[in-house]
């Protein structure tokens, strides 16, 4: 089916474009000329370093003395080095906290806040969006206090008689990673919510009326109208939060530096360590390239999925 439609469309498209050919060519060059400053700047600050990184990733190099060609061994050790493999598992946990939880909560709050007229709704939105505005360093420092042994969280638990649940949140091997993850949930939630609330208001009212006429309750309405209507926003939220989890560095560095032990290391943290603290520039470049490929793949898959459903 699809083959036939494209074979019909293509000659048409060419025929339409072929007519003003000369003009379009000139416009093409002109367009490129207009874009040239941006392309050059982009090439210089993004493409050149990217290619350099690809190049570095095939060497063993301390950043100062002559480098030694090692082929793909840096890439092999990405998937065999126990420290890096462990950090990939941590990323999976972080994805649950940085992406899945905020999206679920974001959808719930969008369903609640989006259409109905809730009193003081602006205030709620403002409060929930606040973490998104704060610098990640500020967020990390605030939560380091909250999670402290004498911090507000443990104080609150003690005050309501749940002292048994109090922990050294960031100093505990089992709790440090989920504790970090929850900080990410808190930050991403506001972003997801604002995105979804905006999306909900763009869904035509007629669809909701129709659903109601067909006898849909609020829950059925959510799954039949709201969720399909938010597909585009979901794709954006998914892409940004999952890649955010993959790149997680600042939060981890400021709160735990990957500790206790190695219980909260992330690939980005190991990249930083290998690039600057114990220079192994080739390995750092390889980590960066693999992370970039992961992020690209995730963006492509999420986009493809959301587009497929559209057609």
């Amino acid at each position: 089916m699809s083959l036939r439609t494209t074979s019909v469309r293509r000659p048409l498209a060419v025929a339409v474009r072929a007519a003003p050919r000369v003009r379009s060519r000139r416009r093409g060059w002109l367009g490129l000329a207009y874009a040239a400053p941006a392309i050059i700047a982009y090439g210089y600050v993004v493409i050149v370093p990217l290619l350099q990184s690809v190049n570095f990733s095939f060497y063993s190099w301390n950043g100062v003395t002559a480098a030694r060609w090692v082929g793909i061994s840096n890439y092999v050790s990405f998937f065999t080095d126990p420290a890096l493999v462990e950090s990939l598992w941590h990323v999976l946990v972080l994805i649950a906290f940085f992406s899945i939880l905020p999206i679920v909560f974001g959808l719930i709050s969008a369903a609640l806040l989006g259409r109905g007229r809730v009193r003081g709704q602006g205030v709620y939105r403002w409060l929930l969006f606040l973490p998104q505005v704060l610098t990640s360093v500020v967020v990390a420092v605030i939560w380091k206090r909250i999670y402290g042994p004498d911090g507000p969280l443990n104080a609150a638990l003690n005050a309501v008689g749940l002292g048994g649940l109090a922990h050294n949140w960031l100093g505990d091997f089992d709790w440090a990673l989920p504790s970090l993850g929850l900080i990410g949930t808190w930050t991403a939630l506001g972003f997801c919510m604002v995105l979804f609330v905006a999306g909900v208001t763009a869904i035509p009212d007629e669809l909701y009326e129709q659903a109601r006429m067909d006898g849909a309750g609020p829950v059925a309405e959510f799954f039949a109208v709201t969720l399909p209507g938010l597909r585009g926003q979901l794709a954006i939220a998914m892409t940004l939060t999952v890649t955010g989890a993959l790149r997680a560095f600042d939060l981890v560095w400021i709160t735990t530096q990957g500790g206790p032990g190695t219980s909260t290391t992330t690939p980005a943290l190991l990249l930083y360590r290998k690039a600057f603290l114990n220079p192994d520039v080739g390995m750092a470049a390889a980590i960066g390239i693999v992370l970039a490929i992961f992020c690209l793949a995730i963006a492509l898959v999420v986009n493809r999925l959301s587009e497929e459903r559209d057609s």
């Binding site: 090439g43 493409i47 050149v48 290619l51 190049n55 190099w61 100062v64 480098a67 060609w69 520039v281």
Partner: peptide
């Protein structure tokens, strides 16, 4: 050009 810029062994000899 970009490859030529970047593709050589890094680090001083």
């Amino acid at each position: 050009i970009l490859l030529a810029l970047s593709a050589c062994a890094p680090g001083g000899s």
